[in-house]
Design a protein around this nucleic acid. Structure first.
Length: 943
RNA sequence: GCGAGUAUGGCGGAAUUGGCAGACGCGCUAGACUUAGAAUCUAGUGUCUUCGACGUGCAGGUUCAAGUCCUGUUACUCGCACCA
């Protein structure tokens, strides 16, 4: 092995001195902008995961440069945030000092990998020259009414003493420290991100993001369409507004549920007779966090609101109102119409509170035909508690196992019908009625009558009280057809095949609502509709015509809570004046710099430590000059990363966040790489921020990123996440020391599919080191022949094509494998030409930049690779003159034959039939067909 | 519950998009070199009992031909979630 350290630092120095990777803001070359998420410079240093994504983008960037592009490939630091602050609190040093140290380590580590970043554009989000413009842009939000202060019940981490966005508190615990999040009311700056919900969905059309990232974003935004419906109250001239996606089920509403915080409670407390009970419930609910509320998925709780009654706007029916914490004030209108027959949550609630369930949709089973005869019928299920068995009729070959069934006669209820049928066929009379199931709309063909039938069928569920029986009224013939059998649950589930009976059984036993589509019933003007969409449309039309409701779209996406009660963040550049209210700090006074303080800990009151620095807090109002106070909250650490790609375009500009020329020249980020964990939060914040800047005319593109790709995680031994506690963290520095940066790079590209997770294996890394050592050895075989060695030429052209295409398609693993194959071929040769070697080194250069430059120089193959061009392939040289293809007989390979380019089908067929082993397998059989796919396969079909 | 994805040797993973499954690498086996080991090099390596058969989570289907297409199903991973 060569002295990797020596040649690596030699070439790293070379690149630095020659400014090889410095991008120019003016160029005749086409531009290309590669961006990889800038890291948070933690004390832990670089991770092998960083190496993976940086190397991948580095490979693409290096190749693009050789292809003649002006490539922007910058790097910087996202250094605000809690860890630096925690570290500072512990060690009593200013976070900016800690950050400085960490950046130094990180940068050294990254540079030792030979990543071709343009370091002339480096900055940190914590640089006042950078956050000056973060503050400036915040003021733009403020000016345009996009920032507002609101008292919000926010997620609060009692340990970090800070407010958390929903994003930072997923799972009900603080993302930083894992403490359980509680609810606390706090005045917060908010950005009107929800205004952009539609644009954020819409804009995805103009991007080339991975599909899974688009779906993640769409899910996060959570668009739903439906209607707001007004339910008049009986006791007072007021309307309770609900949001629903299923207005088609309006006739099935049997109760209303409002959130415990719903304003009607206090507004009409005078009318409510059980206020005490309600207040009690509300207080209990308030103590629960949003997370706890959503965790209690099974057991529903609630209180009926006595004294308030809603009126169904389409049927006029009176409907009771409940409060329950399964309805959230933060979504929709904080009130719902409950349709227990067709919604699981409403079903659970209704079951617990004994509320009626009115079905309005029938499941349709069987297939509908024209000219059907209509009947109403029942299916009766009888359960014997003692034996835990069900009463069935075994029709044997005449229809299999079924429950008792029958057609309803005039004036008969379903229960009467069921009792009559049971007695008739089985004799049992002592039955206790338990329940009627939801009806089913069933279609079938009766062979004995040669007719199609449509039936509406209700299940009737009984329990057997005793064995008491009457004689059955069946003739001999009927009796021979079937036997009455008691069977257990397992047999039922296995043997009852009939769709109707199966459905009825499920309704009776599973006690579940029917949430599928079907035929509308009990719904007045909607009766008979079988298409959900049409029924919804019809209902909304009706509501709008009669002014009872409106079409409405809702989003899950909420406004962005933009303040943190922390020290280590961008100060919010606003001043509060008693007279003028909130006043922006004048532009020329930006940045509002973080002062040096002694203590970084959040205060007991939950305010930022900045609040304790009176000489900083107390200022004068920029508008009227009277004494005023600065905002002491700081920005969340998503702020600095929400526009950093724009700053790279013009990082040293002290007049603007970036010049319009630079913004126009670099335009969109062509390729943005980052982790899947940022697919929703960071990426949405960044897109929202950019869209806003676009709307006010400050950036030329509405969407900031054209392509977004993500890399898979690198896992430790056994496929588990690398973590300090497991002690399985691999330090890239150690690997570089042992095997060299080039080997580490090649290995991380070879490890597997770039987008999927991969398990670390030091053996694999060793294998890649071996590969590079063989590349070095190959130098000894270089002669001074001109051009490519003829026997290698075809493979060289093919490899040029494959490596290029694979890099473009993020298939780095197969690109490396193609290079290994080429090297294997080189090793078959006694000697290779300088062109052979140079081509190989150039193709390998993006993966192993140091070693390839060194060998290129050592063997005097030409100018430095980083200053030359990507090799070209000749399409005509890709094709083999002869090719070996397989000959199959009945789809099984029996021989291989060599075919020429110019061979016709007849010749190929002839060759195939000549093969001994082929003859053996077609011997004595008739050839039905011969399929010849040129260059691929011959298949002879015989019988 | 909803949405997205994955499943191929002992292991990581290939497969020109329907055309010889297992490229490439790791590991393993044998041999060479060596006093010995390491390193390196050479040969072999899907399974089964040989001709041959069987093999891409499972069960069907389409096709001359299926890892690839269709239907169903299982397991795991990720994202969202009393979202009305």
């Amino acid at each position: 092995m060569m002295n990797t350290k020596k040649i690596e630092s030699k070439w790293q120095k070379y690149w630095e001195e020659h400014q090889t990777f410095v991008a120019d803001n003016k160029s005749d070359k086409p531009k290309y902008y590669y961006l990889v998420e800038f890291p948070y410079p933690s004390g832990a240093g670089l991770h092998v995961g960083h190496v993976r994504s940086y190397t991948a983008l580095d490979i693409m960037a290096r190749r693009k440069r050789l292809l003649g592009y002006n490539v922007l490939f910058p790097m910087g630091w996202d250094a605000f945030g809690a860890p630096a602050e925690q570290y500072a609190i512990k060690n009593h040093i200013h976070p900016k000092e800690a950050v400085k140290e960490n950046i130094k380590t990180f940068k050294k580590q990254i540079q030792s990998l030979g990543i071709s970043f343009d370091w002339s554009r480096e900055f940190s989000t914590t640089d006042p020259e950078y956050y000056r413009w973060t503050q400036w842009q915040f003021l733009k939000f403020f000016e345009h009414g996009m920032a507002y202060k609101a008292k919000k019940n926010i997620n609060w981490c009692p340990k970090c003493k800070t407010g958390l966005s929903n994003e930072d508190s997923s799972g009900g615990v603080c993302e930083r420290c894992g403490t359980e999040v509680i609810q606390k009311e706090k005045e917060q700056w908010m950005l009107r991100m929800s205004d952009y919900a539609e644009d954020l969905i819409d804009g995805l059309k103009d991007t080339d993001f991975q599909e899974k990232i688009k779906t993640a974003q769409i899910n996060w935004i959570g668009k739903s369409t439906g209607a707001e419906i007004e339910f008049p109250l009986k006791e007072v001239d007021e309307k309770l507004v609900v949001y629903t996606t299923r207005p088609d089920t309006l006739f099935g509403v049997t109760f209303m549920v409002i959130a415990p915080e719903h304003p009607f409670i206090d507004l009409y407390s005078g009318l409510i007779s059980n206020m005490n009970e309600i207040i009690d419930y509300r207080e209990k609910a308030n103590k629960k966090t949003e997370f706890q509320r959503t965790q209690l998925t099974k057991e529903k709780t609630g209180v009926k609101v006595d004294g308030l009654t809603a009126i169904n706007p389409v049927s006029g029916k009176e409907i009771p109102i409940y409060i329950s914490d399964y309805v959230m004030m933060s979504y929709g209108t904080g009130a719902i119409m409950a349709v227990p027959a067709h919604d699981q949550r409403d079903y659970d609630f209704a079951t617990k509170f004994g509320i009626e369930k009115v079905p309005v949709i029938e499941k349709i089973t069987g297939e509908a035909h024209e000219e059907e005869n209509y009947k109403e019928s029942i299916v009766a299920i009888v359960y014997d508690k003692k034996t835990q068995k069900y009463l069935t009729i075994n029709w044997k070959d005449k229809g299999g196992r079924l429950f008792t069934q029958g057609t309803m006669e005039d004036g008969e209820t379903s229960e009467e019908c069921a009792r009559r049928e049971i007695e008739k066929t089985t004799g049992y009379t002592d039955l206790k009625w338990i329940s009627n199931t939801f009806p089913v709309n069933h279609h079938y063909y009766a062979y004995n009558k040669d007719k199609y039938y449509e039936i509406d069928c209700t299940g009737v569920y009984f329990e057997l009280e005793s064995e008491k029986k009457n004689p059955t009224h069946l003739d001999q013939e009927e009796e021979n057809c079937f036997t009455v059998e008691w069977v257990d649950k397992k047999t039922i589930e296995k043997e009852i095949q009939d769709e109707l009976h199966k459905t009825i059984y499920e309704y009776a036993i599973l006690e579940a609502p029917y949430v599928g589509d079907g035929k509308m019933i009990n719904s007045d003007f909607l009766n008979g509709f079988t298409n959900k969409k049409e029924a919804i449309e019809k209902m909304i039309d009706y509501l709008e015509q009669n002014k009872l409701g409106t079409r409405k779209t809702n989003y899950r996406l909420q406004d962005w809570i933009f303040t943190r009660q922390r020290f280590w963040g961008e100060p919010i550049p606003l001043v509060h004046c008693e007279e003028c209210g909130w006043v922006p700090v004048p532009e020329e006074e930006l940045p509002v710099v973080l002062p040096d303080v002694a203590e970084y800990e959040p205060t007991e009151t939950g305010e930022s430590p900045l609040a304790n620095i009176s000489e900083w807090v107390n200022t004068t109002c920029p508008k009227c000059g009277r004494p005023a106070k600065r905002e002491t909250d700081t920005m969340p650490n998503w702020a600095g990363s929400s526009w950093y790609w724009l700053r790279y375009m013009d990082p040293h500009n002290d007049k603007e966040f970036a010049s319009q020329d630079a913004l126009k020249y670099w335009g969109q980020v062509d390729w943005y790489n980052g982790g899947m964990e940022h697919a929703t939060r960071h990426l949405l914040y960044a897109r929202f921020w950019n869209q806003f800047l676009y709307n006010i005319g400050l950036v030329p593109y509405k969407e900031p990123f054209r392509v977004r790709a993500s890399h898979g995680m690198i896992l430790g031994d056994g496929g588990v996440k690398m973590s300090k506690s497991l002690g399985n963290v691999i330090n890239p520095d150690d690997m570089i020391k042992l095997y060299g940066a080039d080997a580490l790079r090649v290995y991380e590209m070879f490890i597997g599919d770039y987008e999927k997770e991969a398990t670390w294996s030091e053996q694999g890394l060793k294998g890649c080191r071996r590969f590079l050592d063989r590349v070095v050895k190959m130098g000894e075989r270089v002669t001074n022949e001109e051009g490519y060695t003829p026997s290698l030429e075809r493979l060289i052209h093919r490899t040029i094509k494959k490596v290029g295409e694979d890099i473009d398609a993020l298939k780095f693993n197969t690109a490396v494998s193609a290079l290994m194959i080429l090297l294997n071929a080189y090793e078959e040769e006694e000697k290779i030409s300088p062109s052979d070697y140079r081509a190989f080194l150039t193709l390998l250069n993006p993966f192993a930049p140091h070693l390839t430059e060194e060998l290129n120089e050592q063997y005097h193959l030409g100018s430095a690779i980083c200053e030359s061009t990507w090799p070209k392939y000749d399409p005509e040289k890709l094709v083999d003159e002869t090719k070996i293809i397989a000959v199959q007989v009945n789809g099984k390979v029996r021989a291989t034959i060599e075919v020429h380019q110019e061979d016709g089908e007849e010749e190929i067929k002839e060759k195939a039939l000549k093969e001994e082993n082929v003859q053996k397998h077609i011997n004595g059989k008739e050839i039905l067909k011969t399929i010849i796919v040129k260059d691929k396969i011959v298949n002879i079909v015989v019988k």
